[in-house]
Nucleic acid binder design. Structure first.
Lengths: 295, 295
DNA sequence: CGATCTTACGGGATTCGTAAACATA
DNA sequence: TATGTTTACGAATCCCGTAAGATCG
C-alpha cells in the first residue's frame, strides 16, 4: 500500500475535465500512462473510483465520497510545502535575537536596516538586555543567537568574533584632562570615576586587568547601564572608560574620548550561538550580513 | 517539485527514533537509501530539515516548524485511505434503497437480515413507499436502487427481474366462495370487490388485462395500500385479487387465497437502477444477496 | 465507424542495496 | 578509534511513451 500525491493529482485532474484524454494533456502525460496510474490507485484503495466506458465517464459512489477528501488532502499538502519552501527562501518567517545594550543601541539598527531591505517579509524580535541575559537567552533557546562580548569558553555555547572593541577614556570637553595630550591611566585615577556595578562583565574585566598592573581607580559612582555612565560623564560628575562602541553617542553628547594604552582594555564583540543546535536559514542570513560588514 | 508520502514517512521515522540507522531498520530500508531519500526531500523543499553529523542528529528550526505539519499531513492521509479502503471492503458505509410496500413488508426483512449478518457495520435506509415513488427515488438519485414491479422500459432506468408474482383471489374463510372448488373471474365479479385506487400501477395493469377480456369487476371499495385491502378482505367487506407476495400475511389473517387463470395476472418484481450510474460496492453486495436468493 | 479507454512492451528514470569513503566525538 | 552518515555504483523496480487492441455509442 503506497499511494502517491501524484496519483491524487491525477484522479482530481480526470474528475475536473471528465476525460482521460484531456486530463492526460493537462498533466503532460500520455493517456495510457494516466490510465495505468488511475488503475494502480484503484488497486491500492481496493475498488473503482471512476466508472468508465469508451463514451462515458462518471465517479462511482465511492469516488464521489473520496473526491472532497482528495481535494482537501492535496490542498493541505501543497500549502504545507509552499509554506516550507517560502520559509527556506526567506519569504516569510520570524527571527529572535538578543543583543547587549551597547550593541543594540549603536551598531544594530543599521544592520537591521540592511536585513529588512533584503528580506522585508521577515519579522524580527530584538531582545536588548544586559550581556549576561543576552547569553542566557541563547542557552535557554529563547533566541537563536546573541550579539555580545565573548562569554569565554562555554561548553554549550560557541562564539564568533565580529570585531574587537577597545575601551577609551571619556570625559567632558570642560574637563582639566583636555589639556593633557596623551591621557593614561595615571591621569584617570586622580579623578572621580564612574563605572558599572558588579557583577557586570565589563567591570570585572577592567578590575582584573588593572589589579594586575596595580592600578586602583577612584570609583565614585556605580550604575547598571553604560548609557547612564555616558550621561553622567557628560554631566561632569567624573571620568570613565567606555567601549568605543559608544563613540557616536559620545560625540553627540559633546564628550571627549581618548585611546588608552598600557594596559589596553579591549573585548571581542561577536555572535554567540548554541552548540549542536543548527541555525535557521533566517538567522544565517542575518549573521552573513554581520560578517560581511565586519569582514 | 514532487514530494511523496514516503518521504514524509521517512522524515517522521528519523525524527521519531533520532537516528538514520534505526529509522532505516524501522522502514525496512537500507541506511544509505534512507539518507538519499532525506536528501532528496530537503532538495525539493529548499533547505535542510535535519542537522546531522556522525554523532549528533537534530532538527533544524525549519524542521521543527515542519514536524507537526508533517505529522498532521500523514495522519490525514492515512486516515483518508483507511476509510476509503474500509468503504470498499464494506467495513462501513451507508446504503439507501427504496422498495414498494408489498415487497418491503413481506420479503425484504429476511434479506436485510442476511445482509446485516454478512455486513454488520453498514447502515441501511429503507424507503418503503408506493411503487411509483420508489422508482422516482432511483431516477432522482435519492436511492441507489429500488425493488418494485417492472416500471416498463425507461430511457434512464434499467430493470433486472428477480421473480414473477402471480395475483391470487382472496376472500374470507367464511365466504360463500369457499364452497367453489376452482375460483375464477366469473365468480369474483359477483361479489363486492376491494382494490387499489387509480393511478396505482397494479390497478392499471388489472383493469387493462380484464378490459381486454370484457371482465368488469364490481369495485365497491378503493384504497391506497394493499395492506389495507388485505385487512378489508379479512373484515369480510368483499373479495379481492392480491399479489401472492402477501401470502404469508393472508395466512396470518386466516384468509383464503386461490390461483386464478384466464387471464393470469402477474407482474415481474425486480431491481431498478439508474442507467449510466455505477452502483456502490455496498449496493452490489445487497443485490447479490437478492440474486442468489431468487436465482 | 469513430472516439476513448485498456493492454502490451520496450526504454528510461528513479530508487534500492552493497561496499567504500568520510566525518566527528 | 568507533560509530554513524555520505558517496559511488551496479541492479532491480517503477513509470512513462508508443503501438496495437478492445469496446461502446
Amino acid at each position: 500500500m503506497n499511494i502517491t500525491i501524484k496519483q491524487i493529482r491525477t484522479f482530481l485532474a480526470v474528475v475536473k475535465v471528465n476525460s482521460f484524454v484531456e486530463a492526460s494533456e493537462l498533466l503532460h502525460l500520455s493517456q495510457p500512462a494516466l490510465s495505468t496510474a488511475i488503475k494502480k490507485l484503484e488497486e491500492t484503495v481496493g475498488g473503482k473510483l471512476l466508472a468508465r466506458s469508451t463514451r462515458t465517464l462518471a465517479l462511482t459512489p465511492e469516488g464521489e465520497i473520496f473526491l472532497p477528501v482528495a481535494r482537501r488532502l492535496l490542498a493541505d499538502f501543497d500549502n504545507a510545502f509552499i509554506e516550507l519552501h517560502d520559509l527556506f527562501s526567506l519569504q516569510h518567517g520570524n527571527l529572535s535575537l538578543s543583543a547587549m545594550p551597547s550593541f543594540a543601541s549603536t551598531h544594530l539598527p543599521q544592520h537591521l536596516l540592511s536585513f529588512n531591505k533584503e528580506y522585508p517579509a521577515i519579522k524580527v524580535k530584538i531582545h536588548d538586555v544586559i550581556a549576561e541575559d543576552a547569553v542566557k537567552m541563547v542557552q535557554t533557546g529563547k533566541v537563536e543567537f546573541a550579539i555580545s562580548f565573548d562569554p569565554d569558553t562555554s561548553d554549550d555555547l560557541s562564539f564568533e568574533t565580529l570585531f574587537s572593541d577597545k575601551f577609551v577614556a571619556a570625559f567632558s570637553k570642560n574637563h582639566k584632562l583636555m589639556k593633557v595630550k596623551k591621557v593614561g591611566w595615571q591621569h584617570l585615577i586622580k579623578h572621580p570615576f564612574i563605572t558599572l556595578k558588579h557583577p557586570s562583565s565589563i567591570r570585572l574585566l577592567m578590575d582584573n586587568i588593572l589589579a594586575e598592573q596595580n592600578i586602583f581607580l577612584n570609583v565614585t559612582f556605580e550604575t547598571n547601564q553604560l548609557a547612564t555612565v555616558v550621561q553622567m560623564v557628560a554631566t561632569e560628575l567624573g571620568v570613565s572608560v567606555i567601549p568605543s562602541l559608544y563613540k557616536q553617542q559620545m560625540q553627540a553628547l559633546n564628550l571627549e574620548f581618548r585611546e588608552l594604552s598600557s594596559p589596553v582594555i579591549s573585548r571581542r564583540v561577536g555572535i554567540i550561538t548554541r552548540r549542536r543546535y543548527p541555525l535557521s536559514q533566517t538567522a544565517q542570513a542575518f549573521i552573513e550580513i554581520l560578517r560581511s560588514y565586519y569582514q
